[in-house]
Simulated scan of single mutants.
Amino acid sequence: MFVAYVHHRRTRVGSAVVLRRRQTHQTAATRRPDARAAGPLGILPFLGAAQIAGALGLIIGIWFAPLAIAATIGVALYFVGAVGAHLRVGDNVGTLPAAVLVVVSGVLIGLRAAVL
Rank of each mutant, 00 (worst) to 15 (best):
L67P: 07
I52G: 01
L41P: 00
P40G: 08
L44Y: 06
P40W: 12
P40A: 11
I69L: 12
G61Q: 03
A85M: 06
I62Q: 09
H86G: 09
I43Q: 10
P45E: 04
A55N: 09
V80F: 11
L44V: 13
G54T: 09
L77M: 09
A49K: 00
G74S: 00
A71L: 04
L58T: 12
V83W: 07
I60M: 10
G57Q: 03
A70T: 15
I52C: 05
I43P: 03
G81Q: 00
A82E: 14
Q51F: 14
T72I: 07
A71G: 05
G54Q: 03
P45M: 06
A65R: 14
V80R: 01
F46Q: 09
W63H: 05
Q51W: 10
A55Y: 12
V75D: 02
L47E: 09
V75A: 06
G61K: 07
V83N: 04
A49Q: 03
G57M: 08
G81E: 01
G61P: 07
H86K: 11
L47C: 05
A68C: 11
I69C: 03
A55S: 04
I62W: 12
G39F: 03
L41W: 06
A65Q: 10
Q51K: 09
I60N: 05
A82Y: 02
G48Q: 10
A76D: 03
I60R: 08
Q51E: 15
G84E: 06
G54Y: 06
T72A: 14
I59A: 09
A53M: 07
A71C: 00
H86S: 12
L87P: 04
P45Q: 05
L56T: 14
F46N: 02
A70G: 13
G48P: 01
L44H: 12
I59S: 02
P45S: 13
L87S: 02
G42V: 14
P66T: 03
A82M: 10
A85H: 11
F46D: 01
G48N: 01
I73A: 15
H86A: 12
A49L: 00
G42W: 11
L47F: 10
A85L: 02
A76E: 07
A70R: 06
I43M: 10
A71T: 04
